[in-house]
Design a binder for these strands. Structure first.
Length: 907
RNA sequence: GGGCGAUUAGCUCAGCUGGCUAGAGCGCCUCCCUUACAAGGAGGAUGUCGGGGGUUCAAAUCCCUCAUCGCCUACCA
């Protein structure tokens, strides 16, 4: 069999192929690879918008989910990663509306509701859901056979069912209320769809004259055009300045309409002039005041943002055009008393960007209080845990202050509200199934409500609607509540809290146990990535290659592969910290993937020369004649297994990959693999042991890497099967369904770490001296190691082979009373002196300086500890073990100090 | 206005329940294209842990305070 693995790792040559094999073999299916006695583990994907394309935030979010899912699957759990997409009402409607406009000035209105929705479906079938393919490129191991869309028939039924249940419980009501209105989208928006932006603006001061001509009152406003809708001026009842004016009337400018001056505590004497104009139809606070005083509602702005007939000659003008012209006119007429520039927060539509207009309209609402109380109990009583925990507070704070949720939208794409209005009686019929087809309602003129539901209404049901609810399906029984929700902090209110509320309401059980909130992906300056800012890094270009603009610079990328992108994202995913990315960051993942690849090639080449019968088991390993270095590596392998598992259990993604990286890079490659070359050369039993140990350790680390770097670990693992007489991909076995490693006590030996560290320090000392002589690594040196005692010498002697091999030297352990030759230079490693015969000139001053520096550092450390030990309080209060450790350390350090001093004296 | 978070090497970040001379990656300096890997190897340099105060035998870590920067939130007419 010939091995034709390229010298550098070419992700593109493998990833698509591997993914196809996994999928064909059913590896992604719910329950794939599950083992008896293991629990279920489910994650419902945060459904991306059908209109979406994969950005770095998705890449991070899905890498984390896939890592958890793959890990749990390897642990033998009955795993489901439920995928799907969201219909994204407003966003999708906007896409298609834009298309219509581009095709030639058609609007959705001219097309009509049914035709328009048809168009949206056509668009969805043809170009929607692109992102699903992109998630595959990332390596996401979702059960695609269970892919769902929020407007699927089943999920739509769940939406209607939920609506009807809430309605019957009195938790949904219809009412005329002040809502956020988007004049561009021509729909109501929920409070959460309004973003507040700080903007520069003007505060205008207007003069309203008293009707009786006895004077005037001044009010301030940032929206002068709303004065056409004023129905009162309010002053504080305790405001001495205005006592005499309460109950009198003022005349509005231009229209001359008369309105009363009323007393209401809402007017704050400290603010502005202390008198406030009341526009109940266009301001939420004024609406409240108006309600208290029975003031008429006078709407002066139309739903499209233009002024209506109440605005005199400004009727028909856009609200902002009107403001401009109006200000001019008022200035000219002397009504305008002045203006001040201010910076204030303006509520704007999240989707369309324009300032929202508060409007009084009839809408559907959900009464949130009772739902919120139950949702709060879940976290308070520990059934749902946020990671990191501080997000619990954010979640709780919102729920404690939650206001009723406006769920109706005046758009067409979405779940139509399952309520029918009786045209004759005005009665409302709420029903899961169309009542016009129900004989019970025969003869009645029922017309369905025109509005659709807020997109988040269906998203709130996602963890159970995707499992078949309201039917009691086996999947629902097995996977609900799901295990973990992985998401960003921006949708804790929108989505997380609402899923909890709806899960509890409908199923009496939380939708998930753990919520992992990851950081936001930012550019290198710390700004959130966005298309508009041109600071986005396209994950697909990082994976597949291509060129892109980033912060005004052109980047050409050869394509690093999904594993490299995933590794870098995981590495940076530290406890909810935001990620500051730049395209160069992905080098670390790419370099590591290449390192793994080449270590794999090395192992494969050597196994080709000395094949083993089968992948080594623990027993096979134990049956070998294991040397010190082998036993050390095996112990390190166990420690790494424990640490990686622990990190994943605690959602420490960065710690997980960094631990695996450190072991792989330092222990396995830098130390063991290099040592193995010598063992292979030696042949016989030593070579067999090295091959066995190396394969075993490599196999374990491939397993550890599989959740994070699934493609490369699978490819190498498959190739390794060939060396045992098999053929890559031949068996129906896959690394991704193989067991996650568990710590093997028989291979654990904590006593090896310290002696190995000492040997490594000796080797480093030798290499350092070689380096300081400006000699190439290939130059062989002669070394004498002088121990403090004969016993220490005996300890060391069996390990000279390791020092000789790794230090490229002849090493002799000499007697404690050894007199060093003059042509040597001495380094200190603890209580050992390492004498290296010089072959070239050495910068003695520099060498001395290094040692001196070390001496100073040690002396400082010892002095600190000795002071501590001299302190009676320390001895009395610190734990005994702590004190003993300090004593031991001082003893060790004093030995090294003495050693260093002697050495320095001899230099 | 309120809340939350951050501030550690030139850069990006670890450092968890206070306790070894505070670490890693990138970058930097020296040497090496050695038959797994130059996307590599060997060695090295680099810190008033944002400032100030406090608690403690002991503080990067806990508390207070100030500064700077983020994010969320709020109806400032």
């Amino acid at each position: 069999m010939t091995l034709e693995l390229s010298k550098t790792y070419d992700a593109k040559a493998h990833e698509a192929d591997v993914y196809r094999r996994w999928e064909a073999a059913g590896c992604f299916k719910a329950g794939a690879g599950k083992r008896p006695g293991k629990p279920a583990y489910a994650i419902a994907i945060p459904p991306p918008n059908v209109t979406g394309v994969l950005h770095m935030g998705h890449a991070l979010n899905n890498t984390l989910q896939d890592t958890l899912i793959r890990w749990k699957r390897m642990q033998g759990c009955d795993v489901l990663w439920q995928p799907g997409t969201d219909h994204a009402g407003i966003a999708t409607e906007a896409v298609v509306a834009k298309q219509l406009a581009a095709e030639g000035a058609t609007t959705r209105e001219t097309l009509g509701r049914e035709k328009f929705i048809e168009r949206v479906w056509q668009w969805k079938e043809k170009s929607g859901g692109l992102i699903v393919g992109q998630l595959r490129k990332l390596g996401s191991s979702c059960d695609w056979s269970r892919e769902r869309f929020t407007m699927d028939p089943g999920l739509s039924r769940a939406v209607r069912e939920n609506f009807v249940r809430l309605y019957k419980e009195g938790l949904i009501y219809r009412g005329t209320r002040m809502v956020n209105w988007s004049p561009v989208l021509k729909t109501a928006l929920s409070d959460d769809e309004v973003v507040h932006e700080d903007k520069n603006g003007w505060m205008w001061k207007l003069r309203y004259d008293l009707v009786d001509g006895s004077g005037s009152i001044a009010v301030e406003t940032t929206r002068p055009e709303t004065f056409f809708g004023d129905t009162a001026v309010a002053v504080n009842p305790d405001d001495a300045r205005y006592q005499a004016l309460i109950g009198r009337k003022v005349r509005l400018p231009i229209t001359g309409r008369e309105i009363p001056i009323i007393a209401d505590a809402y007017a704050d004497p400290e603010k502005g002039t202390g008198a406030v104009k009341i526009t109940p139809a266009h301001d939420p606070n004024d609406y409240e005041v108006g309600a208290r005083h029975n003031l008429p509602l006078m709407r002066v702005i139309e739903f499209d943002g233009t002024m209506n007939k109440h605005a005199a000659h400004f009727a028909g003008q856009d609200r902002f055009a009107c403001r401009k012209a109006l200000v001019h006119e008022l200035e000219a007429s002397g009504v305008m008393l002045g203006k001040t520039e201010i910076r204030h927060s303006v509520g704007t539509s999240e989707r369309s960007g324009e300032p929202i207009e508060p409007m009084v309209t009839e809408q559907w609402f959900i009464r949130m209080r009772p739902l919120a109380e139950r949702a709060l109990k879940e976290t308070n009583e520990g059934r749902i845990t946020f990671h990191p925990t501080q997000w619990t507070k954010v979640y709780s704070h919102w729920l404690e202050n939650v206001r009723d949720w406006c769920i109706s939208r005046q758009i067409w794409w979405g779940h139509r509200i399952p309520a029918w209005h009786d045209q004759d009686t005005g009665e409302i019929v709420v029903s899961v199934d169309d009542p016009t087809k129900d004989p019970t309602y025969a003869g009645r003129r029922l017309v369905q409500d025109a509005d659709v539901l807020d997109t988040w209404f269906s998203s709130a049901l996602w963890p159970f609607s995707t499992l078949g609810w309201p039917d009691r399906t086996p999947e629902l029984a097995r996977y609900y509540p799901t295990s973990t929700l992985v998401t960003g902090r921006d949708i804790i209110y929108f989505w997380v809290a609402r899923m909890v509320m709806m899960g509890l309401f409908n199923l009496d059980a939380r939708p998930f146990n753990d919520v992992y909130i990851h950081g936001t992906v930012n550019d290198e300056r710390g700004d959130k990535m966005s298309k508009a800012k041109g600071n986005g890094i396209d994950p697909l270009i990082m994976i597949d290659g291509g060129s892109q603009m980033y912060l005004g610079k052109q980047y050409d990328n050869p394509g690093y592969g999904a594993d490299a992108v995933r590794f870098t994202l995981l590495e940076m995913a530290t406890e909810g910290q935001d990620l500051k990315l730049n395209p160069g960051k992905f080098d670390s993942g790419r370099h590591f993937a290449n390192k793994v690849w080449n270590a794999g090639r090395f192992l494969l080449m050597n196994l080709a020369e000395r094949p083993l019968a089968k992948p080594p088991t623990v027993d096979d390993v134990l049956a070998c004649h294991l040397g010190f270095v082998e036993r050390w590596l095996l112990d390190r392998t166990q420690a790494t297994i424990a640490a990686c598992t622990d990190a994943l259990e605690r959602f420490r993604f960065s710690e997980y990959v960094v631990t695996a990286y450190r072991f792989f890079h330092d222990d396995l490659c830098d130390w063991y693999l290099e040592w193995a070359k010598r063992q292979f050369k030696a042949g016989g039993e030593e070579a067999r042991a090295a091959a066995t140990v190396l394969w075993y350790a490599f196999d374990r680390v491939l397993r550890l890497l599989q959740p994070g770097m699934p493609f490369i670990s699978e490819v190498l693992w498959q190739h390794l099967q060939t060396t045992a007489g098999g053929q890559a991909w031949a068996a129906k076995s896959f690394l991704m369904l193989s067991p996650w490693p568990e710590v093997e006590p028989r291979l654990t030996d904590a006593a090896l770490a310290a002696p190995m560290a000492e040997l490594q320090a000796v080797v480093t000392a030798v290499r350092n001296v070689r380096n300081q002589q400006q000699l190439a690594d290939g130059v062989h040196l002669t070394v004498s190691i002088q121990p403090k005692t004969a016993a220490r010498g005996n300890e060391l002697r069996p390990h000279t082979a390791f020092i000789e091999d790794r230090g490229n030297c002849d090493a002799t352990v000499v007697a404690p009373d050894f007199t060093k030759a003059s042509a040597t230079v001495t380094s200190v490693v603890g209580d050992l002196k390492v004498h290296v015969w010089l072959q070239n000139t050495i910068d003695l001053a520099a060498f001395k300086a290094t040692n001196l520096k070390r001496l100073t550092g040690l002396e400082k450390a010892v002095a600190g500890k000795q002071a501590r030990l001299a302190n009676a309080d320390y001895l009395a209060r610190a734990p005994a073990q702590q004190v003993q450790d300090t004593r031991d350390q001082v003893a060790k350090e004093l030995l090294e100090i003495a050693n260093l001093k002697e050495t320095l004296a001899g230099l």
